[in-house]
Nucleic acid binder design. Structure first.
Lengths: 126, 126
DNA sequence: ACTTTATTCAACCTTGCGGTTGACAAAGGT
DNA sequence: ACCTTTGTCAACCGCAAGGTTGAATAAAGT
């Protein structure tokens, strides 16, 4: 365990059941039993899933009599979104650089990007 | 295996090494060996990681002599972003509904955050 | 006080993951 | 032709994930 936050979040959402729970929790808080109903697994299994989601910071559980209402914490989504956007943007920028490059292609085989080593940067095009 | 696409993508990104590879691939394509260099694991391990990323549709591998340049496929990010945005939006909307509700709350004394009973809003009758 | 409801804890089982090593395949360099 | 480079395939190992059942806990209901 002790995995970094991002790993935990991604791992938590890698399970379809857990993703479905999250989806339902966007609509309203729910107790463990309520959450468990649609799935064909034991209550204990659902409880475990919730623990995973909680450890990932995706949900919090409060107390209300014997019930433990589960509440979705949206903030963590931001963490993921940030990660995603960052690399998506970079990838896009790279596309643009590449496009620009191809646009003005003279015929020199020089390395335009300076990440040193011959980065296998599609230097050979079929 | 045959897991749904989204599960595969999330699972693939749940590993820090793989996330790092993806990060580096946003800068430039790279061969297996190049990708492996920074990590203290065998080449075979890296090869496996790449297979996972490939199965998730995050990268593609072409041939170039003995080398297998790995290329990042940005499209899959969109799938994730879509999922994320969808639920993030719903969660936000829910906040707003709640805010609106609290805003026009009649004169209630004391309790700022009314934990009330029946917070378990799911309107599930017994 | 006893029972029911709601949930967790504990032990266990099976599967899959990330890692290893060793052998093999294919393309190039010499 | 041979050897080197670059990767993959296959078998194996330890461990954590997701599931199960059974017992324990806690707060209401009666």
């Amino acid at each position: 365990m002790a995995a970094d936050p991002l790993s935990k979040v991604f791992a938590a959402l890698a399970d379809p059941t857990r993703r479905d729970m999250v989806a339902r929790l966007t609509l309203a808080d729910a107790t463990v039993g309520e959450l468990a109903k649609p799935y064909d697994v034991s209550l204990q299994a659902v409880s475990k899933h919730l623990r995973v989601l909680e450890d990932a910071g995706l949900v919090t559980r409060s107390k209300e009599a014997q019930r433990r209402p589960v509440h979705l914490e949206a903030e963590v989504f931001d963490l993921m979104t940030k990660w995603l956007e960052r690399y998506r943007r970079q990838a896009e920028e790279r596309y643009q650089r590449l496009d620009a490059l191809l646009a003005e292609m003279p015929d020199d085989p020089g390395e335009p990007q300076p990440p040193k080593k011959s980065t296998t940067t599609t230097s050979k095009e079929k």
